[in-house]
Amino acid sequence: MEVRTIKVFTTVDNINLHTQVVDMSMTYGQQFGPTYLDGADVTKIKPHNSHEGKTFYVLPNDDTLRVEAFEYYHTTDPSFLGRYMSALNHTKKWKYPQVNGLTSIKWADNNCYLATALLTLQQIELKFNPPALQDAYYRARAGEAANFCALILAYCNKTVGELGDVRETMSYLFQHANLDSCKRVLNVVCKTCGQQQTTLKGVEAVMYMGTLSYEQFKKGVQIPCTCGKQATKYLVQQESPFVMMSAPPAQYELKHGTFTCASEYTGNYQCGHYKHITSKETLYCIDGALLTKSSEYKGPITDVFYKENSYTTTIK
């Protein structure tokens, strides 16, 4: 009895394709271990004539594949690729409408935090270190965002349907971005203890939790000093293409032309909904596939993004 075979390709990165001759009487799992086709788990399936010449994702289970996976995804987590594939199996079914010149995501599976993050990423200057993220990001900007969303979920250790947080998501993504040249110098002034300067680099240099107003941050924000008295913390120097200011959701007025974009969060910790506000020729609110415009805006804002380049204080 002759062994019926077909020729397929296996890959971990969709760049390096490895030619395989597979036995049609055995499952993919018996031949390769966990195997995925377009995100779908085909591990328990036997090869079919229609699979001839198709590319299958496999887990990096030998040295060659491990090197290829690390170079593309910059992670050695053995569960990463499987999590990416199972997320992709959902995100490829989502709709990605162009809204006001940006790629958004039609609401499904509690994905409003991903839509808000995706919209924000198209408006701030950011370059990702893992080629996987950078490639998928370019495709997302062009309207094909399924891979990018699935990668975000995998890097953030999230599953489809789980509630997510924009600030946490951005923080994970910033860790995989090139923020080497970003720098922030802060000064804390206390009447009792004097003053202390701190220099922050990388992710810490672009994120701040405690106030939404970048102007206020430049002037000074009140913080408790270690001595128990009130101290003032203010920005001395900022070198970065953008800054992200966050605070627990509270009524906040966004003035046209003073910011790049913002995240609105309605609801409580267990259950809520994100919308995205962007400042173009007027203010726009993007909620999944829905767009509304207004000249002014007041609502429960939790993150505001500002364009920056270089700032030095005039406070002496």
Rank of each mutant, 00 (worst) to 15 (best):
residue 140 A to Q: 04
residue 314 T to S: 15
residue 268 N to Q: 06
residue 276 H to L: 03
residue 44 K to R: 14
residue 115 A to T: 08
residue 64 T to L: 12
residue 195 Q to L: 13
residue 234 Y to L: 06
residue 141 R to D: 05
residue 104 S to T: 15
residue 59 L to T: 12
residue 267 G to C: 04
residue 168 E to S: 08
residue 244 M to L: 06
residue 42 V to F: 14
residue 47 P to G: 07
residue 45 I to M: 13
residue 236 V to R: 01
residue 88 L to G: 05
residue 88 L to D: 04
residue 129 N to T: 10
residue 39 G to R: 05
residue 197 Q to M: 12
residue 174 F to K: 07
residue 216 Q to K: 11
residue 11 T to W: 07
residue 4 R to L: 14
residue 102 L to K: 07
residue 117 A to S: 07
residue 164 G to K: 00
residue 27 T to V: 12
residue 163 L to A: 10
residue 253 E to H: 11
residue 195 Q to E: 14
residue 192 T to C: 09
residue 306 Y to A: 03
residue 15 I to P: 01
residue 188 V to R: 08
residue 183 K to W: 15
residue 16 N to S: 06
residue 94 W to G: 06
residue 19 T to M: 13
residue 201 K to H: 15
residue 165 D to P: 00
residue 290 L to A: 13
residue 14 N to C: 10
residue 182 C to S: 05
residue 279 S to L: 04
residue 296 E to W: 11
residue 203 V to N: 04
residue 234 Y to M: 09
residue 313 T to C: 15
residue 216 Q to C: 05
residue 135 D to E: 14
residue 46 K to E: 12
residue 38 D to F: 11
residue 93 K to C: 13
residue 301 I to K: 01
residue 170 M to H: 02
residue 172 Y to M: 15
residue 142 A to V: 13
residue 240 S to M: 03
residue 204 E to H: 09
residue 279 S to Q: 03
residue 200 L to W: 01
residue 308 E to I: 14
residue 228 G to L: 05
residue 168 E to D: 01
residue 77 D to T: 06
residue 129 N to R: 15
residue 54 K to G: 11
residue 199 T to P: 07
residue 151 L to C: 02
residue 44 K to A: 09
residue 191 K to F: 07
residue 36 Y to C: 05
residue 8 V to K: 13
residue 93 K to D: 14
residue 223 I to K: 08
residue 208 Y to M: 01
residue 284 Y to S: 05
residue 9 F to W: 12
residue 86 S to A: 14
residue 54 K to I: 12
residue 162 E to Q: 12
residue 53 G to H: 11
residue 294 S to I: 15
residue 242 F to H: 01
residue 305 F to T: 02
residue 69 A to T: 09
residue 140 A to I: 13
residue 116 T to K: 08
residue 25 S to L: 12
residue 74 H to S: 02
residue 272 G to M: 00
residue 138 Y to P: 06
residue 35 T to A: 15
residue 89 N to T: 14
residue 299 G to F: 00
residue 295 S to N: 14
residue 115 A to S: 11
residue 169 T to A: 09
residue 50 S to E: 14
residue 107 W to E: 04
residue 165 D to K: 06
residue 60 P to D: 15
residue 81 L to S: 03
residue 259 F to H: 00
residue 97 P to R: 07
residue 110 N to I: 07
residue 263 S to V: 08
residue 230 Q to H: 07
residue 233 K to I: 14
residue 88 L to Y: 13
residue 295 S to T: 13
residue 277 I to K: 03
residue 60 P to R: 07
residue 292 T to W: 02
residue 31 Q to S: 13
residue 79 S to H: 11
residue 255 K to R: 10
residue 254 L to P: 02
residue 70 F to I: 11
residue 155 Y to S: 03
residue 193 C to S: 02
residue 228 G to Q: 00
residue 203 V to R: 13
residue 86 S to G: 12
residue 243 V to H: 02
residue 70 F to M: 14
residue 99 V to W: 11
residue 299 G to R: 05
residue 202 G to R: 04
residue 313 T to R: 14
residue 199 T to K: 08
residue 67 V to A: 14
residue 32 F to W: 11
residue 155 Y to I: 01
residue 299 G to E: 07
residue 290 L to Y: 13
residue 84 Y to A: 03
residue 306 Y to F: 06
residue 43 T to V: 08
residue 283 L to V: 12
residue 269 Y to T: 12
residue 224 P to Y: 10
residue 121 L to D: 00
residue 247 A to C: 06
residue 152 I to V: 10
residue 136 A to P: 04
residue 198 T to Q: 14
residue 144 E to Y: 11
residue 276 H to Y: 01
residue 89 N to I: 07
residue 61 N to Y: 14
residue 301 I to G: 00
residue 308 E to M: 08
residue 92 K to L: 13
residue 303 D to P: 00
residue 160 V to M: 02
residue 11 T to R: 05
residue 163 L to F: 11
residue 160 V to Y: 02
residue 263 S to F: 01
residue 160 V to E: 03
residue 245 M to C: 12
residue 316 K to Y: 15
residue 179 L to T: 04
residue 119 L to E: 03
residue 6 I to N: 03
residue 306 Y to L: 02
residue 118 L to V: 05
residue 63 D to G: 02
residue 111 N to Y: 05
